[in-house]
Amino acid sequence: MIGKRILLIPPERQNKFDTINNLEDLQQSIMVAGLGMNWYDIDVWKMNQLPVHVEDGEWRTLYSKISSDGEVNYFPRGMTEIVNEAEQNDHLAIEQRLMLVYDNDFNFYLSESADGYQMAIEKTLQRAKASGFMGTLIENIGNTP
């Protein structure tokens, strides 16, 4: 889910984002993403030729830099982060149409004493994916009270 990015934006820019339907549209928009220094996302944005502002130091200062016409126009956040961050920053809104998706898996590490759980975890995750349950969970993130 962390590789599924949803954007925090100035609410008055939703109409601009409504015109973006693919990567090429986002590239041509010349809008700038804000990312923290040393985040792996920087490479993704640069490889896709998307303008990026890299915040050196405290990345949370990006919230106050996001504006319609300033140096940062949107802040891509993971699905697990976006709702809480939008609630804490009432001057920003969750972009309503777009999701930027790239592979970024989490790795689970088990201690030697928990090594016996590896197969059970793998099988459960594989079943959840094959049955569609994992997809349903991902689609419904943020829809719960």
Rank of each mutant, 00 (worst) to 15 (best):
F75Y: 11
N48H: 09
I82K: 05
N22K: 04
D90F: 11
F17A: 01
T80P: 03
L62K: 10
V72Y: 03
L7I: 05
I20V: 11
Y63S: 13
G57T: 10
G34C: 06
I9R: 04
T80A: 15
P10Q: 11
Q27E: 02
E81H: 07
E81F: 02
L8S: 06
A93N: 07
Q49L: 10
V54I: 11
Y63C: 06
N73P: 02
D43I: 07
I20W: 03
N73H: 12
R97W: 08
S68C: 07
I30E: 15
Q88I: 00
E81Y: 06
D43Y: 04
H53A: 12
N15K: 12
F17S: 05
Q14M: 04
Q28A: 12
G57N: 11
A93I: 06
T61R: 15
I42K: 00
K65V: 01
H91C: 09
N89L: 05
I94D: 11
Q88S: 13
H91K: 13
A93S: 15
V32T: 10
N21S: 07
R97L: 14
I66A: 03
E85N: 00
N38M: 11
G57V: 08
N22V: 03
D56M: 12
L26N: 10
A93G: 09
L23V: 02
K16I: 11
V52G: 05
P10C: 11
M31G: 01
E12Y: 08
Q14W: 04
N84F: 08
E95G: 01
M47C: 08
Q88V: 07
Q27C: 03
G36T: 01
V54W: 04
I6M: 15
N89P: 06
V54E: 08
G34V: 08
I20G: 02
N22H: 02
I94C: 00
D56E: 12
G70A: 03
V54F: 00
H53M: 14
A33F: 10
E71M: 02
M79Q: 13
E58K: 14
H91M: 08
P51G: 10
E24L: 12
V52W: 00
I20H: 04
W59V: 11
N89E: 09
P10E: 13
Q14E: 11
Q28L: 14
G34H: 03
G78W: 07
S68H: 02
D69K: 14
D90Q: 15
R60T: 13
